[in-house]
Amino acid sequence: ADFLSNDDYAVYVRENIQVGMMVRCCRAYEEVCEGDVGKVIKLDRDGLHDLNVQCDWQQKGGTYWVRYIHVELIGY
């Protein structure tokens, strides 16, 4: 899907992401590398560009918070 802005994409992720879902990092962020796959373990839905998504990352080996714009949804 094509999104006009980071805000549009962040809204899409916020409306669709669920705890337990698998996500792929589509934009490297601090300790999380692009392409790493993680399981969503906690969500904080306050802002669009806060650290909203806590995942247990496979490559990184452990949990880390990222923003909506850092992840793509790959289902369960």
Results as ranks from 00 to 15, higher is better:
D2L: 05
D2A: 07
D2G: 13
D2M: 15
D2E: 12
D2K: 10
F3N: 14
F3M: 15
F3I: 11
F3R: 09
F3C: 10
F3H: 04
F3G: 05
L4V: 14
L4S: 13
L4T: 07
L4R: 12
S5K: 13
S5G: 12
S5P: 14
N6K: 14
D7K: 08
D7R: 12
D7M: 08
D7W: 08
D7E: 06
D7V: 03
D8Q: 12
D8G: 09
D8V: 05
D8F: 08
Y9L: 05
Y9E: 05
Y9D: 07
Y9Q: 08
Y9K: 06
Y9S: 09
A10Y: 11
A10R: 05
A10T: 09
A10K: 05
A10L: 07
A10D: 06
V11D: 10
V11E: 13
V11K: 14
V11I: 12
Y12K: 06
Y12F: 02
Y12M: 05
V13P: 02
V13M: 08
V13A: 01
V13N: 02
R14S: 08
R14K: 08
R14F: 04
E15F: 02
N16K: 06
N16E: 07
N16F: 06
N16T: 08
N16W: 03
I17N: 04
I17H: 01
I17L: 11
Q18M: 13
Q18N: 10
Q18W: 04
Q18C: 13
Q18V: 07
Q18L: 05
V19K: 04
V19Y: 03
V19S: 09
V19I: 08
V19H: 03
V19P: 09
V19L: 13
G20A: 00
G20F: 03
G20K: 02
G20D: 04
G20L: 01
M21T: 04
M21N: 01
M21C: 10
M22T: 13
M22Y: 15
M22V: 10
M22K: 15
M22L: 13
M22F: 14
M22S: 11
V23F: 01
V23C: 03
V23D: 00
R24G: 02
R24Y: 01
C25M: 07
C25S: 02
C25N: 03
C25A: 06
C26I: 11
C26T: 10
C26E: 02
C26P: 04
C26H: 09
C26A: 09
C26K: 14
R27D: 09
R27G: 06
R27H: 15
R27P: 06
R27E: 11
A28R: 09
A28H: 10
A28T: 06
A28E: 12
A28C: 03
A28Y: 08
A28F: 05
Y29M: 02
Y29A: 08
Y29Q: 06
E30H: 09
E30C: 09
E30R: 10
E30A: 10
E30M: 12
E30G: 14
E30Y: 04
E31Q: 13
E31H: 08
E31P: 11
E31A: 13
E31M: 13
E31T: 13
V32Q: 00
V32E: 00
V32Y: 08
V32F: 04
V32L: 08
V32I: 07
C33S: 09
C33K: 14
C33L: 07
C33Q: 15
E34A: 10
E34F: 08
E34T: 11
E34Y: 15
G35P: 04
G35M: 02
G35A: 00
G35F: 03
G35D: 06
G35R: 01
G35T: 12
D36T: 00
D36I: 06
D36Y: 09
D36W: 09
D36A: 08
D36F: 01
D36S: 00
V37G: 02
V37W: 08
V37S: 07
V37Q: 13
V37I: 14
G38V: 00
G38T: 02
G38R: 01
G38Q: 01
G38S: 00
G38P: 00
K39Y: 04
K39W: 06
K39E: 13
K39S: 09
K39I: 06
V40L: 01
V40E: 01
V40R: 02
V40Q: 01
V40S: 03
I41E: 03
I41A: 02
I41M: 13
I41F: 03
I41T: 14
I41P: 03
K42V: 08
K42C: 08
K42E: 12
K42Y: 11
K42F: 15
L43K: 02
L43Y: 01
D44N: 11
D44W: 05
D44L: 05
D44S: 15
R45M: 14
R45S: 13
R45D: 15
R45Q: 07
R45C: 11
D46L: 13
G47S: 12
G47N: 13
G47K: 03
G47Q: 10
G47Y: 02
G47R: 06
L48Q: 13
L48Y: 04
L48H: 07
H49Q: 10
H49G: 14
D50V: 04
L51G: 09
L51E: 09
L51C: 05
L51S: 05
L51N: 04
L51T: 04
N52M: 11
N52S: 12
N52V: 11
N52W: 06
N52R: 09
N52G: 07
C55Q: 01
C55W: 03
C55H: 02
C55R: 00
D56L: 08
D56F: 04
D56R: 12
D56Q: 13
W57V: 00
W57M: 05
W57I: 03
W57F: 08
Q58M: 03
Q58I: 05
Q58W: 03
Q58H: 06
Q59A: 11
Q59H: 07
K60S: 09
K60P: 07
K60E: 05
K60Q: 10
G61T: 10
G61F: 04
G61L: 03
G61S: 07
G61C: 12
G61V: 03
G61I: 00
G61A: 04
G62V: 07
G62Y: 05
G62F: 15
G62A: 11
G62Q: 15
G62H: 06
G62K: 11
G62N: 15
T63F: 06
T63D: 05
Y64A: 12
Y64W: 04
Y64G: 13
Y64L: 08
W65F: 05
W65K: 10
W65V: 05
W65D: 01
W65Y: 06
V66A: 01
V66F: 00
V66N: 04
V66G: 01
V66M: 15
V66K: 01
R67N: 10
R67W: 01
R67D: 11
Y68M: 04
Y68D: 11
Y68S: 12
Y68C: 08
Y68L: 04
Y68T: 05
I69Q: 07
I69R: 11
I69W: 10
I69D: 13
I69Y: 12
I69M: 08
H70K: 04
H70F: 02
H70T: 04
H70Q: 09
H70R: 00
H70S: 08
V71R: 02
E72W: 01
E72A: 07
E72F: 02
L73G: 05
L73K: 06
L73W: 00
L73M: 13
I74E: 12
I74N: 12
I74H: 13
I74A: 14
G75C: 08
G75P: 13
G75F: 08
G75V: 03
G75Y: 11
G75M: 06
G75S: 12
Y76V: 09
Y76D: 14
Y76T: 14
